[in-house]
Design a protein around this nucleic acid. Structure first.
Lengths: 106, 106
DNA sequence: TGACTTCATGTCAGACCTGACATACATTGT
DNA sequence: ACAATGTATGTCAGGTCTGACATGAAGTCA
């Protein structure tokens, strides 16, 4: 949000904050959610780039289609652990993983 | 290992491989173990740099001293999830996290 | 339309992880 | 030696995550 717009809104009596503040998430919690989002995107990207279906990837990962879908959707029932293990199982290197994490949501 | 040393050993009848091959770990499994190691080191570094005891950090993380010890030891009972959540809770940014991961074990 | 393919969502038993506790070990100071 | 402080390790009840299954939704093709 631009500075001037914020100022205008605040003059008008609005309490302007981030989504994080609205939902009452701590900085760390927010970072965790974002991290998960980034990893799930990375996973989907890598799968589609290889033209695999979720079912095919599931076989590769010894998981199930539904879990792959949930991973890519950033479902709350999916841990960062699983996302990272899946990326690694797809051949992602540690360096690439770091790059994925470094790229923030824009 | 230097190339020439490897060659010498192999001439002498040794099958030279990596730890991974010895233990029968897949590339992905190895990467996972290494990742965990790196994160646990990162955690300990950040704690000692702040001159906190494990018990103090535990309070901060709403965990226990024994779990912190296990985190720093890379204990099998500790998930990558917990390590990352702990780092984030200590104020580590996403970018810093990426840097930690990018630094390979030397 | 119906058959087929791909992805999404709900549920659940069993596997796995977590905080807490007890206790052991190591180091330092007296 | 003893006490104090910090760290390591084993155990376990309760909580979370996972693969699998069922089913739905959306798209494609004939």
């Amino acid at each position: 949000m631009k500075k001037d717009k914020r100022a205008r809104l605040e003059r008008a009596g609005w309490k302007v904050g981030t989504v994080r503040e609205l939902l009452g998430l701590s900085r760390a919690e927010e970072a965790l959610v974002e991290l998960k989002l980034i990893l799930s995107r990375g996973l989907r990207e890598r799968r589609t780039r290889r033209r695999l279906t979720q079912a095919q990837l599931a076989r590769l990962l010894k998981s199930s289609q539904s879990r792959v879908a949930k991973m890519e959707a950033g479902d709350p029932s999916v841990s960062i652990d699983l996302l990272i293990r899946s990326l690694l199982a797809m051949g992602t290197t540690q360096r690439e993983l770091a790059q994925v994490i470094a790229h923030k949501t824009r």
